[in-house]
Amino acid sequence: MSSIDITPPRAAAREKTVSARIWHLALSSVEFRIGLVVFTVLLLATLFYPWLSGIDPLKMAIREKLLPPLFLGEGWSWAHPLGTDQLGRDMLARALVGLRYSLLIGISTTVLMVMIGAMVGLFAGYYGGRVDTVLMRLTDAQLSIPMIILAITILGVSRPTIPAIIVVLGLAGWPVYARVMRSTVMAERKKEYVRGAMVLGATDLRIMFTLILPLVLPPMCFVAVLDIARMMIFESVLGFLGLGVQPPTPTFGNIIADGRKYLMNAWWIATMPGVFLVLTLTSINLMGAALERARNAIYGGA
């Protein structure tokens, strides 16, 4: 932008896109910054700690079993800051590797469900009429099955693998996005630029994908940040029920389910990974809430 030197800053601010304004507003809030810092630290830790420390989360060391975390109880050591489990595996490395899977599944699931929801909502909202009725009744039917029942039914009777978990959770979560997308597309469809494109002879698909979608998708993605956290919880619930990623791969769900058996004499196995999960989720939720607020503020103000 070469004009930025000439025009006063207020005019420049007005030129920014809606998404940039939402980003800007969110970044200026305290909760977003707290969330971002915590999340970055955890992300760096999960990417580098298991590799740098050279600790294998699957390596058993029966002699070092059931060591408590730092300063809590007898026999703790600096080598295992969060203690070890019943087979002497390092809890910190296990929790961080679990976080990797949790983030991987959480993010890909959310992307998948936003994509499906956006497509269904786009077609329903754009065409209206019978297409709309059919798609929306389908959405209602899907909304009325509790998604967790659907997920455990499918994963319980078939073999749970990572792609299967992503697809099942993604297929279970799209209806909300379809509804939001449909209502925004219906509002956009009546606007002049769409009518103008129609008069110019643009096809429906061209209008939908090059005009409407780029305009309405980014604001929806800001809200989707909150769903990454929700999906991570779902993933850990599935793991807890034994329907998630299977052991020996550590995930929050199966570590906690495992640790529940040793709750009386080694409380840290079940609780410590949970603290990590809660920290990660809180940081994502703080960022998500800040983005959602910024979005509402900008839409409400504009």
Binding site: E31, A229, I233, S236, V237, F240, F252, G253, I256, R260, L263, M264, W267, A270, T271, G274, L277, V278, L281, T282, I284, N285, L286, A289, R293
Partner: peptide, 28 residues
């Protein structure tokens, strides 16, 4: 702000973990 922080923390507590922790604290 407090309401926002509190709800962000509450929504981040996985129910099964919270159940275990509260059972350990309050019950055991």
């Amino acid at each position: 702000r407090l309401a926002l922080y509190l709800s962000s923390v509450l929504v981040s507590l996985p129910n099964f973990w919270l159940g275990i922790v509260l059972a350990l604290l309050l019950s055991v």
